[in-house]
Simulated scan of single mutants.
Amino acid sequence: MFENIGSYGVGSVSRCRGWKTMEKYCMERSQQYFLKHYVKEIGERSTFYRRQNRTLLVNAAAGHPFESDPGAYNQNSIWDSFKNGFDAFYRFSRPHTVIGTALSIVSVSLLSVEKLSDFSPLFITGVLEAVVAALFMNIYIVGLNQLYDIDIDKVNKPYLPLASGEFSVVTGIMIVLSFSIMSFFLGWIVGSWPLFWALFISFVLGTAYSIKLPMLRWKRSAVVAAMCILAVRAVIVQLAFFLHMQTHVYKRPATFSRPLIFATAFMSFFSVVIALFKDIPDIDGDKIYGIQSFTVRLGQKRVFWICISLLLMAYGVAILVGASSGFLWSKSITVLGHTILSLILWNQANSVDLNSKAAITSFYMFIWKAQYNEI
């Protein structure tokens, strides 16, 4: 028994020494293996970073931005924000009204020119003073109307920035106040009484048209609303800005020429048509919020053809006036031009789908373009 135990002990010692030797050998081989691969990995990473740095240097030399540069991302973000803000303000300003106002002022200013020498830096300065001040007031008027029509515009014009939520009410108020102040400040600096009174009357009528106060909010009355638009676009724009050029810029006595009277009468037709037609695509929201426009009272189709009839009458009057002109070139251009315009108008009107809001809105923009042609 003891022999067997002794024999077992000696073999165990021998095997233990063998295991230790094997363990030591395995550890050394493992360390060599990991060290080899670690060095290899470091070499590969070093090569990768050298290549990456070389690529970045080449891009920098070629003027290309680094993909990982946070400044490029910030610049793109700032530029996108600027573009979105400008687009929202562009829609807020109602650009078709801005264009119409600017062209009307330039056109009526040309009626004050009596001789070639009147085209001078003085003329350009006087026109710019009138246009800039009037556009500031125009933005005040259309902006104020949007502030008080947010709920209506969510139905009628959801693309406007206040209705869509792109502008907050506070932002709208700040824009409206800023542009009204700038308009009056410019009018005061210029020192032209016709210009100042044009701005003041436009301010009063534009405010009374939109603001919700007792005896105001005149847009709820179809007749009063039309008269406000007629007074501003047909009378004030024509007469006041003509007097601005005549009396303030050229220092001449106030006189109303035949072309000025005709232009005022002709633009009165267009102003009435615009006042009536603008409510045709807005019938849904106006019905919901109790705006008693002519379209709500008479229906879209009837008001549409009343507008077409008024425009055709205006073109007819222009043709008669042109035919009575003593100048052959003036007679030919006026008669032929308004004949073509009346035919285009009739053709476009007959192709409008009155059940499509998009088609009606498109035709409304066509009327503004027709007014631009007359200006």
Rank of each mutant, 00 (worst) to 15 (best):
S268Y: 06
L230G: 00
S202Q: 14
S257K: 13
K251M: 13
L186F: 06
V132K: 06
S351Y: 13
L312V: 03
A234V: 03
W193D: 08
G126T: 05
I344Y: 07
S14D: 14
V58P: 10
T247R: 09
A231D: 01
L144G: 02
T361G: 08
R29M: 12
I150S: 02
A208S: 09
V170H: 09
G290Q: 13
R45F: 15
F266Y: 13
F269D: 00
G11S: 07
N59D: 13
C16V: 14
S309D: 12
Q371S: 10
R252C: 01
L216Q: 01
G299E: 01
E114T: 08
W79A: 11
P121D: 11
K301Y: 07
L312N: 07
V204D: 00
C16R: 15
D80H: 12
I236W: 06
A358R: 15
V155P: 03
F256E: 05
F304R: 00
F184C: 04
L135K: 08
L147E: 07
P95N: 13
A349Y: 07
V169Q: 14
S342L: 07
L205H: 03
A314F: 04
A254Q: 08
P259Q: 08
K24F: 12
R51Q: 14
I42H: 12
L186H: 05
S46V: 14
D80E: 14
D118T: 12
T334R: 10
G322L: 03
N145Y: 08
W218T: 02
D87Q: 11
Q31S: 14
R94V: 11
R17E: 15
I375S: 11
A163G: 02
S164E: 08
H37V: 11
R302S: 06
Y140N: 00
S112E: 03
A222N: 08
R54P: 03
R45P: 04
F262D: 01
P121M: 04
A163K: 03
Y73C: 09
I291M: 07
E129K: 05
A263W: 06
A265F: 15
V335P: 00
W218N: 00
L213T: 11
G126W: 01
G206V: 04
V98L: 11
Q238I: 06
